[in-house]
Amino acid sequence: MASEAVAAADSVELAQLQRDAETFKRVHPLEYYRRFLSQQLRPDGRGLERFRDTSLSINPLATAHASALAKIGQTSVLCGIKAELAVPSLQTPGWGFVVTNVTFPPMCSASSRLGPPSEQAQALSRLMHGLVVGKQAASSTATAPSVPAPTTPLKSQSAQAGMAESNPADAGARGIVDLNELCITRGELCWCLYVDAVCLDDAGNSTDAALLAIVGALHALVLPAVTLDAASGKPGFNPSGNSTQLTLPATPFAATFSLFDGNAFTLADPTAEEEAMQSGAVTIVADVSSENPTLWTVHKPGGTPLSATALRQCISQAVERIKTLDALLQAELASQSTAME
């Protein structure tokens, strides 16, 4: 009897405490976080350096040429790729086109509303586009079609035109996709890839999820064989022909860290709540798939400055994280191919 009474009293007290914690969080959100962080813990139970559970599923959609769904915790980003035939632009007769877009429909979070894409979406689109095509279109990134309005192949020509064809052998100039591979007949026919990432649920760190989804979908992409009709010169699909899979010279992934309370704390993989309160963020993109891991981008859009040591620490954490992402992709692709057989 007595023990039951004690248990009941305990549960009442617990409920009271919970309610108090809830109130405290609402009134002093920053202080609430500080108390957690000073114990090297976060309100969702993670340590400061821990990333949330991450999963990737390849080709969940039948309507796109390739697709991938990336989930980091609750955050989910779905990427779909549609491939179309287009005529290469005069400046770059040996290249195809890639149009990359990240959209945040109003559904995905309470703050995004109807209307033109937010700055966040535009900035992320531009970042992703830069990663996908790399320096190949370096001078075009300024005009890269970050507007989500569907651009026709003709339009995207103008978006990516205006650059000299750089030396494709220059490894540093490459993005995830080698534009040379998208060319079918030089100066006449090429592929135009529309890479669209849609954020289905934004619970923080959509950058990492978006890049994971995009890389996953690009790996799943199989382009059908194209034959030119000799008489009319019109292209047609050849279902029996060899379909091609892109070689993809690189597979970079991203790891984002949030700077909290000035730069007192560095939190890996911030949630939406943490993002709303953070004083700055840094995204590190690196490729560990080859023998020599390469650092691609350190993206730090403003906010409080970050010391060189802290940055170095972030980078080493990021490389560890990116190794796990790389393993995740390989495992997913392997299970996909065994399922196919």
Partner: peptide, 22 residues
Amino acid sequence: CDVARAPFASPRDDARIGTDAN
């Protein structure tokens, strides 16, 4: 109510919607 259609939502043989039909 607001409806958004993912760019890759329609079946693959459909041509991408041009600015005209937009």
